[in-house]
């Protein structure tokens, strides 16, 4: 993958309408050992701690992680709002700054709140005008489901409508890559569903979409691929199924009944043990073998087997224990 060289124009020319005249090369997104540290003199936090990530064009990828996992910083680096302390970030074969300037990127930021005294149509018209080949304004409004509210002032809209305006802002320029930072935070169920419908119809046009979320179902339902981040690193990367397997597929739990939990981690299939309120929770990638062995040693009181949900996998991957003692904070 030759993501860093910028002189492969001949290849791009034949791929048709979207890249014609733009001359983009390389994957949509490419992070190489990117590190970003915040704070100064003494107390620093490594918000992004060595991320390697390649996203091909046309993929829809979810960046999944808890609050503070480093999602927003990763997106900040991606958009060129921040520069990495070390490592590189490339979008479509160029630096984030150049990709943004060339109109290849559209984004919906987490912090964005509506600016006062502007109508929806005025805002979208302006944003579209800054891009070289924007969507027609009416089309952008329709994709975001905002046609009915086009002439309303954006500071007079509801939370869900505001979120859609920000989505319309992100797609107004018809960018190759669209980046959505926690796009459905603070939306109710119905607004959330409507939003993802809009997002999928945008992705179907062949665009690359990267969104961050801490909702597992959203990632599972709306992305081709899930990248789990925690403590500034990539913890898992793949489809929902891959990630379920990676974290140990199922959960077997028993009442300990005063029996020590020592040695349970050695049972067949078990990849992790958690003790909570007198119950041992065994994460296992072979629940049958685990249950048979538990029966053999007579530890079956209150036994339960739960099919591995993605949520279990997520919790397993991002729990603090999974990181050992590494807390990513150094005090000098």
């Amino acid at each position: 993958m030759t993501q860093t060289t910028g002189n492969q124009r001949t290849g791009a020319r034949s791929t048709g309408v979207r890249t014609e005249g733009i001359g983009t090369t390389g994957p949509a997104v490419c992070f190489t050992a990117a590190v970003k540290t915040f704070g100064r003199a003494g107390r620093t936090v490594r918000a992004v701690d060595g991320i390697d990530l390649t996203i091909e064009r046309g993929e829809t990828v979810a960046l999944l992680g808890r609050n503070g996992a480093g999602k927003s910083t990763t997106i900040g680096l991606l958009l060129g709002l921040d520069t990495p302390d070390s490592g590189t970030v490339r979008l479509l074969g160029r630096t984030p700054d150049r990709a943004v300037r060339a109109g290849l990127v559209g984004a919906m930021l987490q912090e964005g709140r509506p600016i006062p005294r502007v109508t929806v149509r005025e805002l979208i018209t302006f944003v579209a005008s800054t891009y070289p080949r924007p969507l027609p304004v009416d089309e952008a409004l329709a994709l975001a489901g905002m046609t009915a509210f086009a002439d309303r002032r954006i500071d007079k809209l509801s939370g869900g409508q505001t979120q859609r305006v920000r989505f319309a802002v992100a797609l107004a320029g018809a960018p190759e890559l669209i980046v959505l930072d926690e796009p459905t935070a603070a939306l109710d169920v119905e607004a959330r569903r409507a939003f993802w419908d809009s997002m999928r119809s945008f992705a179907r046009r062949g665009n690359t979409v990267l969104f961050s979320t801490h909702h597992l179902e959203e990632a599972d339902e709306n992305a081709d691929r899930i990248v789990v981040v925690g403590r500034g690193r990539i913890l898992a990367d793949g489809t929902g199924d891959t990630i379920r397997r990676a974290a140990g597929g199922s959960l077997v739990s028993i009442d300990l009944a005063d029996r020590p939990a020592d040695g349970l981690e050695l049972l067949p299939g078990v990849v992790g043990v958690d003790v909570r309120g007198g119950r041992a929770l065994l994460r296992t990638d072979d629940p049958d073998a685990t249950v048979v062995e538990l029966a053999r040693i007579g530890a079956v009181r209150g036994i339960r087997v739960d099919g591995g949900t993605l949520e279990d996998a997520f919790l397993a991957l991002t729990s603090p224990e999974a990181a050992g003692t590494d807390t990513k904070e150094s005090v000098r």
Binding site: L81, G103, G112, R113, I115
Partner: peptide, 11 residues
Amino acid sequence: LGWLQQLRITP
């Protein structure tokens, strides 16, 4: 309001 960041990521 985050408007300057949004403006910054337009071309």
